[in-house]
Design a protein around this nucleic acid. Structure first.
Lengths: 138, 138
DNA sequence: TAACCTTGGTTACTTTTAATTACTATGGTG
DNA sequence: CACCATAGTAATTAAAAGTAACCAAGGTTA
């Protein structure tokens, strides 16, 4: 199956260098990483927890605009993936602390590279957008 | 405004070290990067173009599962952001080539770090998921 | 003892956004 | 005149996110 497709690809491309294919299964690391943290809130929560463990309502007030429902849901997902650890302290009222696991700290490193790149080039991107929009509208 | 919120935050957290807040404006690099390439196809297209410039239908066949419409749309968005350059060759039939811009090559580097991290830890994540699901269902 | 407070949720419902599918256009070629 | 590559557009469906109301435990207050 794979071999056949590769062959077809090579034939189609003729004398060009061979190019990768991106398969639609759960072995594709790109699709995996996008599915895991490509949603609206995951990266924000991971970065919030870089500052140290934090509790539900504090996170809610630090991540401006997140609803209680989405915070719960995204924290659950991150916990399930193994990026976040949830600890319940049976005090009154109950206290729940969230912190990065070792894996959570692990993924934050490349994410940080990405975000600092984005920060550095934010103006360039806005510039490109403007040029594009001006060109298209004319 | 910001100052006030910061103050409130510090008061709320008392003797803990100060924590960052993540504001809801377009200056937040995290929200920006997620909005740009957090969708289903952007990262795949960027990575496909790392192998060199390519044309529409070749991309379509290499990125398994993408529809014609989503490829068009995502390429347009990437072009608008300045990651991809589109060149039309007025041959017959028309040939359209897509390639990474300098900025596109720039963002792919941190993305590559992220993807290789994800590739290395894919099994760990699947393991975590299984443990979580077993724990929850019991 | 009843009403109320807190934190940290859940549930049902609605809105918004993303993605898919199918159809149309263009401007040549064989 | 059916075909190609490269789109655009419209209709539909699916998925993500938001809103608001409610719940639970256990303490406080009246």
């Amino acid at each position: 199956m794979r071999k056949e497709e590769k062959k077809r690809c090579v034939v189609a491309e003729k004398n060009k260098t061979e190019r990768r294919k991106f398969y639609n299964d759960d072995e594709c690391p790109i699709r995996n990483v996008v599915a895991q943290i490509g949603d609206k809130w995951s990266m924000l929560i991971l970065f919030a927890l870089v500052d140290g463990s934090d509790r539900f309502n504090s996170l809610k007030s630090r991540i401006i605009g997140i609803s209680q429902r989405m915070l719960t849901q995204t924290l659950r997902d991150l916990e399930r993936e193994g990026y976040v650890k949830r600890t319940v302290f049976p005090e009154v009222p109950v206290r729940v602390e969230y912190e990065l696991t070792e894996m959570g700290s692990g993924i934050v490193k490349p994410l940080y590279q990405l975000v600092s790149w984005a920060g550095e080039h934010h103006d360039d991107i806005k510039h490109c957008r403007k040029i594009y929009d001006d060109r298209v509208s004319s």
